[in-house]
Design a binder for these strands. Structure first.
Lengths: 197, 197
DNA sequence: GTCTATAGAAAGATAGAC
DNA sequence: GTCTATCTTTCTATAGAC
């Protein structure tokens, strides 16, 4: 609940620019590209809308900058390979949305309606998720399996946190994990080399 | 390619209202709720924007009306139960988006950015997909499995047709089907009664 | 570096003529 | 039943004062 009472900085370009970027990351994650105006972002950052364009050129430029920052896959891919299915299933099911936090996946899922944003999202997904995930998975048809993995977990996040269907919101978490784990496993395990790492 | 040259009807409320509904269904499917204005819909239907509000009250009302119509699940659920996994995998992978056709799933996936639309989408998914699918699946944890099924295939449609990631667009279709089928099967088959119908 | 003020475009909705 | 015209709001972006 760190409300917008930022330590009063004055005439510090870097700090201001960071404050805007941080505010936009959070607000876009919560509401998506279209629902948020520059005024709201600026207000959250403690400045005026004019500065957003001054530092980022345009709303689209700001959005691109947010997703340019590297998405940290380490916590996900650091999991033990054989335990990955169970671990990732639990991660997806128990992950709680924090409305005051940057969440690249939710930000993207909520920003599909703008053409400019969509292009940036496509590029981000391919560069930041698809590529490293394909490499990490390895084995036969790694690219297709990475695609299915992204489809699966984006769909899960979409239905659980964005659309919020009851089936997933009211479900017992342990049951969901039990059901989800084998799905992740068969995607993650290369069919022809299931025991390799 | 049936461009907007509708058989000139004059002063026929039912026909006009239908034309608007049909045009909106197609345009919303192609572009989503936010990207489309009432003027564009009206033009496509061969009328003016004022009539849209006259017949549907508001843009939101129009959107709700589109999704009120029953989604026909028969072609999907009519499949033989044991062959369902293979059949549905092939269906999802080979399905081609037709930009001149109403597609409820793509319409919803592209309309997540508006709050009013999102509420309608949530209700539609639960009433029109979740409920019948849960009943059809049956067995233990049918609701959770239905939720996962919806998550899986909405995520697949999202990444294939909306975001269009290369992993799924450039993939060999047979490989995708082969990988997808077992995923669908383990969701569809109740863990404790895998052989029941 | 930051602000106020505003330009300019587009949207949803409505009043009223025909 | 359908149209034109317009009101009102909201948005991104920019010019220019301080």
């Amino acid at each position: 609940m760190k409300k917008a009472v930022p330590a009063k900085r004055k005439r510090d370009a870097a700090a201001t620019s960071n404050a805007i970027l941080e505010a936009a990351s959070i607000v876009f994650s919560r509401s998506g590209y279209d629902r948020v105006g520059l005024r709201e972002i600026a207000k959250e950052a403690g400045v005026t809308a004019a500065l957003v364009n001054r530092y980022f050129g345009s709303k689209e430029g700001l959005f691109a900058r947010i997703l340019e920052r590297k998405i940290d896959l380490a916590p996900v891919l650091a999991a033990d390979r054989v335990a990955f299915g169970d671990w990732f299933a639990e991660y997806l099911v128990t992950k709680r949305e924090n409305p005051n936090q940057y969440d690249p996946m939710l930000l993207m899922l909520r920003s599909l309606s703008d053409d400019d944003a969509l292009k940036i999202i496509r590029a981000t997904l391919e560069e930041q998720l698809s590529k490293p995930l394909t490499a990490w998975l390895g084995g036969d048809n790694a690219s297709e399996r990475a695609g299915l993995m992204i489809a699966m977990f984006s769909g899960f996040a979409l239905m659980k946190d964005v659309v919020r269907i009851k089936n997933l919101r009211k479900a017992d978490q342990d049951i969901l994990i039990t059901l989800l784990a084998p799905i992740i496993k068969i995607i993650a395990d290369s069919p022809k080399s299931p025991e390799m790492g």
